[in-house]
Simulated scan of single mutants.
Amino acid sequence: MNKIKKLKQLPLKPSSFAILVSVIGFELVIVAIYLGSILLTGEPYPPFDMNGQMTIPSFLQAFYLFGIGSIALILLVTEPRSKLPPSAGFKLAIAILLLYATLDEIFEIHLQLDDWFAGIEKGDWMGIYLGVFSMTPLVWYKDVRRLWRVYRQEMLIVLLGLGLLIVGGLGAELFKGWFRLFVGLLFDHDFILFFAEKVRVAIEEFSELLGETLILYGIFLFVKKRHRRRKFFQSSPRPT
């Protein structure tokens, strides 16, 4: 039996789902405080404003993005010649994109870019960002395919997180005009229309938080399995 077959038979240690559930629970608390404060006072409590800059939700998203980018950078530095997927180019691209996204989440750089580049509106940058992030797995398709073959469970969690991030986050932003029109056709009370928009923001931001949480969790499992894989190959006796 070769090493790969032995590796597949290794029992996986139970992951700490309690941490994942606790983090998601904290994110739901943020949503509850955000919407509850609007219902009580008409305005979101500033530290928990899900549509604000440099708030708890904003810093939490930045922390997730920084964590993912840092893991890619650490793997790039500690494994410069590793034959295990992903390649150095893929890790470098992920590190650059996610560390930039961290700064953008904190300082909202994309809101300033339309002032620097004539002819490009604020909404156009979302399409540009989405295009750049979508091109990454296409350019490094071989890395994605190898990761899928070796780390399928972890990839499924990451893909689920990406799906929530794109469909829930970007989708809620791209179709907010249709949402407002639909709510306006059903209700004509000003506060209901106002609160419905805040609910849409909460859905968008929570989807992004949850998506990034699952991505970071999937990458944590990937690093954990990678470490066990390396230890297994180092401890296995070489054939004579």
Rank of each mutant, 00 (worst) to 15 (best):
D49T: 04
S22W: 06
F107T: 08
S82Q: 09
I106T: 11
S87A: 10
A18I: 08
T78M: 10
E27P: 10
G89E: 03
I96R: 11
S70T: 15
A62R: 01
L73I: 05
N51W: 05
I30F: 13
T78H: 03
P46N: 04
F63P: 03
L113S: 05
R81C: 03
A93N: 06
K91E: 07
V77R: 10
A101L: 15
F59L: 15
Y34V: 03
G89P: 00
G52W: 08
S22T: 10
A101P: 04
I68T: 11
V23A: 13
V29D: 01
K83Q: 11
Q53F: 02
M50Y: 07
F48Y: 13
P86G: 08
D49E: 06
S37V: 05
P86T: 05
E108V: 12
K91I: 01
V29W: 03
L76M: 12
L99S: 11
L40W: 03
G89A: 06
I30H: 07
Y64Q: 13
P44M: 04
Y45I: 02
I68S: 12
F48M: 12
S22P: 05
I68G: 14
E79D: 14
N51F: 08
S70E: 04
L20W: 08
S16R: 14
S70F: 14
A72G: 09
L113P: 05
P46A: 06
I68W: 09
L39R: 05
F17A: 11
F90P: 01
L20C: 11
F26G: 12
S82H: 04
E108D: 09
I68Q: 10
G89L: 00
